[in-house]
Design a protein around this nucleic acid. Sequence first.
DNA 1: TTGTTCCAGCTTTTT
DNA 2: GCTGGAACAA
Length: 720
Amino acid sequence: MDVSFLINSLNDAQRLAVTAPSKSMLILAGAGSGKTRVLVHRIVWQIQVEGLSPHSILAVTFTNKAAMEMRERIEKLLKSPTQAMWIGTFHSLAHRILRRHATKAKLPDTFQVMDSNDQLRLIKRLLKSLEIDDKKWPPKQIQGFINAQKDEGLRASHISDNGDFFLRKMLQVYQEYEAVCNRLGLVDFAELLLRAHELLRDNESLLQFYQRRFRQVHVDEFQDTNTIQYAWLRLLTEGRDNLFIVGDDDQSIYGWRGAKIANIFSFQQHYPNHELIRLEQNYRSTGNILQAANQLISHNGNRMGKQLWTDRGQGELISLYSAFNEQDEAYFVVDRIKQWLEKGGLKKEVAILYRSNAQSRQFEERLMTAAIPYRVYGGLRFFERAEIKNTLAYLRLLSNHDDDPSFERIVNLPTRGISTRTLDNLRDLARSQQISLWQATTNLLEEDFFPTRAANALKKFKQLINELAINCEGLELFEKVKLVEKQSGLIDFYKKEKEDRGEARIENLAELVNAARSFDYHLEENEVLSELAMFLAHATLEAGEMQGADADDCIQLMTLHSAKGLEFKQVFMVGLEEGLFPSGRSIDDVAKLEEERRLCYVGITRAMQQLCISYAESRRLYGKESYPSPSRFLREIPAECVQDVRIRANITRTVGTNKNQPILPLTNQYKAGEKISHAKFGLGTILQTKGDDKQEKVQINFYKGGLKWLILAYAQLERV
DNA sequence: TTGTTCCAGCTTTTT
DNA sequence: GCTGGAACAA
C-alpha cells in the first residue's frame, strides 16, 4: 500500500516521530511545530503500516475540543470512521471505564457526575450540617484542598493531621464529603480520575484486559498532566514501552490546577527505552516573533531546552506601545485594528490577549463605539447556565431521587412555599439518619411531622416529581426534556422575569430540547444506563462550546490562557505591567513567575505576522489609580526585534542574559500532615504541596503565623 | 418571599 | 469600583 501521503508533507523530525517503530516516545513539540499533525499521522501510520486495529489505540487529550479535532483529522486522513478508537479526555475516558465496571469500582450503576459548582454547593451544605465556621474554613478553600488531594491520589484516610486543628477539620470535611458522595451516588471530576486509577490498580485481571487492548497509548499536551493522570497512564503502559507523549514544557501554564511539568522528567526515568524527538521548526510565526519568544523563555531555569526557528524570514518588527492609561491603550489597539481592516485584513485574524478577564471591558467599549464586531471568550457555557442547570436538576432527580444537590436546587424553584425552616428539618433528618433528602421527605411526611402548610407543599413537590416520572415513560429523550421544562413550571417562571432576560432563558431552554434531540449515543456492550443518564453525564463532562459561531468574522478577545493552541495573524498582547502580567500574586515566587513567563511565551507565539505589545503607565485597578512599571518580560525581549510605536517609552531593553539559576539541591518531599519548624515562623504543619521538585512549594499552617505558602528550596524547613 | 442593603473579595480554566 | 452572595427587613 502506498503510504507516501502520510510522510510526504512532513519535515525530518516529524517523519522520524511518525514512522518510528513501536516504542515509548517523547515528542517535545514547540509552539506551531505541527504537533497535532504528528500525533494524527502517527496514529494513522500505526493503523495502515503497522497493521494495528483502531480498536487497540488509545488517545488522550485535555479538552473535548482537542479530542474532537483529533478524531476528525484522523478520519479524514484514514478515510474511514474511527468509532472503535478510544479518543477522549482523561475525564471522559475515566467515566467510560467507570460506567463499564461500576460495581467493581464500588459505584452504583446510576452514579452521576457533578461539576465544580455542584461540588461547592455540596461542601457548603456539609459545612452547615457539621456546624463548621465557613469564615475559618472557606468552602472554596476546602474544595481546593479536596481536589488537590485527589489529584495527588490521596484519600482522607491517607492523610494524617498530626494534631493540627486546622488540617483536622479539613480532613473531617473531606471524609464526610467522601461518605456523602458515596451515599448519593455522586462523583466529582477529580473523583473520576482517582476512581478509575484505583479500579485498574486493584483489579489485576481488568488491568491486564485494558493493557492488552490498548497496544498504543498517545497523550497530547503531556505537560498538563497531574499526578493521578500520569499514574493512570503508567498503569496502562509501564513496562510495555508503548506510550507516545507529545508536549512542550515551555507551554505548561496550568501548574495552579495540579499540572506537573516534572511528569516529563519522570517519564524519562520510568520509560528508559524511550526516544526523544524535538520539533523545533516553526510554521506559524516570523523570525522576529520567534527570536523574541526564544529569548524570553531562556530566562526560565529547569527547561528541557528548545529553540524555535523558521525559514520564512524575519518579518515585521514587534510593535511596542506605551500607553498613558488603560483607555489610551484600548484606543490605540482599536486604531491599529482599523488600519488592519483598511488594508484588507479580516476581523477574525485579530486577537486581543490579556492576562485577566477584567481587562476586556475597555476594549469592548472602544470596539463597540467603533462599530467593530467582536467576540469575548470565556463566559458562562451553555450547560452552566442557571436555567439549563435547573432543568437538568429535574431530570437528574427523575433518574436518581437521592441526588441531593439537584434536590436542593429545585425543591423550591419555582417557589412552591417550602421554607428554609422546612428544609432545615429535612437536612437534619437526612444527616442524622444518613439518608438522602428525598428519603427524609418521605419519612417525615409519613410521620406527619410537618404543619399542614409545609406538608402540603412538600407533598405537591413529591407528586410533581412522581408525575413527571410517569409522564416521561416511553418518551423520546427530547420529549422528556420538553415535558419537564413545561410541567415543572420553569417556563412559566422565566416568563415572569424581566423581558429580555426571561426571553433569553426561554430560548436557551428550547435550545436544550434541540441538544437532546440531536444527542445520539450508541450504547456499547456492558452499558445498561438509560439514554437520559448518559445525556446528563454528557452535559456535565462537556459543558458545551461557548456560544457564538466560529464562522462569524469578528475580533477575538480572550485571556492568554484560553489562547493556547490558537493562532492569529495579528496579535495584541496588552497590559504588560508588573503586578498585572506577571500577576501580582506570582511576583515573589520563582515557580509562579516562571509560569507567568511561559504564559507570555504562549502569547507571543500565537502571532503569525504581527505582534503588538502594549502597557499603560497608569491604570485604574479595583477603583484605585495605580502606576505600574513596565513588565519585566519587556526587558527580556531582545531590543532588535522591537520598535517603539511612539517616541515615549524609555525602558531599557537589554539583550537578556541567561540568569544561571543556581542548581538547587533536591529537596525532601513533604507530605500533608508532617510537622516542621521554620527559622522565622516557628512550628507548623504541612497542609499541601505543589510544584516540581526543585521548585516545590508547601502550604504550611504555622501555629503562630497562620497560613503560608513557601518555596521548599528556600524555606529551610526542618522536620520535627 | 421578595427586595434591599451591606460586605468581602478581586488571576488564570477544564473536566 | 464593581459584583455576587448573604443577611436582613417589610
